[in-house]
Design a protein around this nucleic acid. Structure first.
Length: 479
RNA sequence: GGCGCGGUACCCAAGUGGUAAGGGAGAGGUCUGCAAAACCUUCAUACGCGAGUUCGAUUCUCGCCCGCGCCUCCA
């Protein structure tokens, strides 16, 4: 098996995965700030993280993934106050929405999905450790981290501090800081704002401390992998390193992985440009969860993904090709027997798929391996060279790759229905469909094509596509 | 300005120091009562531009141009 290599932002090169604990990968993946519905760009990163964990599992690693839910920050405090509800009450809605969205996209639930506000004590303890080491200072009730005291500051994002002057007052945060880049570990409460009464005083946590505290609580001082979107590399992840390593004296993370952004029609997604989409916006427009998942994972994570209506169409067609293939394998009847060649071919597909992912999660390469197999087997079937006993083997290959891709099972309607995007009409039950197909078969037999086509049309009107195959069997699928 | 990612066919997108994977769309064909699916053929003398290294570069080096992002709590 090809050794797994991943691009480490810290060193800017491909490095082998080398877990601290044998057979187990511990990773921290930056999750959403739950002040609103997550948008499609967020999910680009989350799908990447999901593909990563699924791939590691396919390599038989135990995966211990921690994902944070940032449920306290300026926006949340403001919005909750404006709505006249508690922070918890305000964020709960979006936490639930996030879980539903995850489910719709087949994102596996991390082993630990943790809320910042449940870990205030852990953050306070970590801040105290930093205080004891003399790395912090207080100003107007807030506590800051003095980056001048952390020699490696800037290593991840390659930010050069040499040109920066200390003592300059830069009023970016309406707080007093010694250095513009110093960041708040703990923020003094503002009048009327929600705050926590703690050993280090009243207030609320700064943004970065939650990730350091929760990551180390669940994963230990040194994590194997930490991921997030590229925008988080600075300052968020840089600050996490400073906090964590200064506190423990150990390297915080072995591999830093950053997903490039998704852009829309070549432009940054933003509310002001009017090209801002949540998952639900896309569902409402009739796009399927599987289409979106496929599109998000089809472009390797370190490459910007240009999200367009055309790319959505292409993704939908690609998924259909894969699903048609599996359906054909399951329904069509082939000559009895089995062939060593086909078995080898299936094995090769699995190997190539795996090798593609092993090379920094090159999903484009991995998908090519799958499509190569699809074409070759389809060709064999058309030529009558494909044998019945091989069908389950090839299906198994497809199931294996789908353990990572997670787009083959056609549950789009179910997922949409769960979110309230179901079609207006009830789905025709499978039994009824089978009955109609039998009727149609009978009609075909007596060459009553008028009747036969009427039934096909009737089914089509109910959103069911009927396909005749060479061997006389009929397969159907929901549109 | 600093840091980072990228510029490959109509679109999306791999890749290698020795002559361009895969998907989508298009065109033609096969199969078929019809339809769909599928298959076959076709679709980049060419990989942003210029120079260099080399027997040979899309792949290495240098310079330039262009796009996008980060450098102000945005994945």
């Amino acid at each position: 098996m090809t050794a797994i290599h991943l691009h480490n932002t810290l060193t800017n090169r491909l490095q082998p995965l080398d877990p601290v604990h044998k057979g187990e990968v511990r990773m921290y993946t930056c999750g959403p700030t739950v002040y609103d519905f997550a948008h499609i760009g967020n999910f680009r990163t989350f799908v990447f993280q999901d593909v990563l964990r699924r791939f590691l599992q396919s390599r038989k690693y135990r995966v211990l993934q921690v994902m944070n839910l940032t449920d306290v920050d300026d926006r949340i405090i403001q919005k909750a106050a404006a709505a006249g509800v508690s922070i918890r009450e305000y964020t709960e809605k979006y936490v639930q929405a996030f879980l539903q969205d995850m489910d719709a996209l087949h994102l596996e639930v991390p082993e630990e999905l943790v809320r910042a506000t449940d870990h205030i004590d852990d953050m306070v303890a970590l801040i105290e450790r930093l205080q004891k080491k003399g790395l912090t200072y207080s100003s107007e009730g807030s506590i800051y981290y003095s980056i001048a005291k952390f020699p490696h500051y800037g290593r991840l994002s390659k930010i050069d501090l040499a040109g920066m002057k200390t003592g300059l007052r830069v009023d970016v945060d309406q707080y007093e800081k010694e250095n513009a880049r110093d960041f708040a570990l703990w923020k003094a409460p503002k009048p009327g704002e929600h705050f926590w009464e703690t050993r280090i005083g009243p207030g609320r946590p700064g943004w970065h401390i939650e990730c350091s505290a929760m990551a180390m609580k669940y994963l230990g001082d040194t994590l194997d992998i930490h991921t997030g979107g590229v925008d988080l590399a600075f300052p968020h992840h840089e600050n996490e390193i400073a906090q964590s390593e200064a506190a423990t004296g150990h390297p915080f993370v072995r591999l830093w992985l950053h997903a490039e952004h998704l852009i829309i029609d070549g432009e940054k997604m933003s509310k002001s440009l009017g090209n801002f989409f949540t998952l639900r916006d896309l569902f409402a427009k009739g796009h399927k969860p599987s289409t979106i998942r496929f599109l998000l994972l089809s472009v390797p994570y370190r490459r910007q993904l240009n999200f367009t209506s055309d790319s959505l169409k292409q993704a939908e067609s690609s998924v259909a090709r894969l699903r048609n293939f599996v359906s054909r394998l399951k329904v069509e009847q082939f000559p009895a027997g089995s062939s060593a060649e086909i078995l080898k071919r299936a094995e090769k597909a699995e190997t190539d798929f795996d090798a593609g992912l092993a090379g920094d999660l090159n999903t484009a390469m991995a998908l090519a391996a799958v499509f190569d197999l699809v074409r070759d087997i389809n060709t064999a079937m058309d030529r009558g060279e494909f044998l019945q006993q091989d069908a389950p083997r090839v299906v198994a290959t497809m199931e294996k790759v789908d353990a990572i891709l997670a787009v083959l099972v056609d549950d789009d309607d179910d997922k949409l229905a769960k979110l309230g995007f179901g079609q207006s009409q009830e789905r025709m039950p499978a039994e009824r469909i089978e009955t109609l197909i039998e009727e149609r078969n009978a009609a075909k037999k007596r060459r009553d094509f008028k009747r036969s086509d009427d039934i096909r049309q009737q089914l089509a009107d109910s959103g069911i596509i009927v396909e005749d195959t060479k061997d006389g069997s009929v397969r159907w699928k929901y549109k």
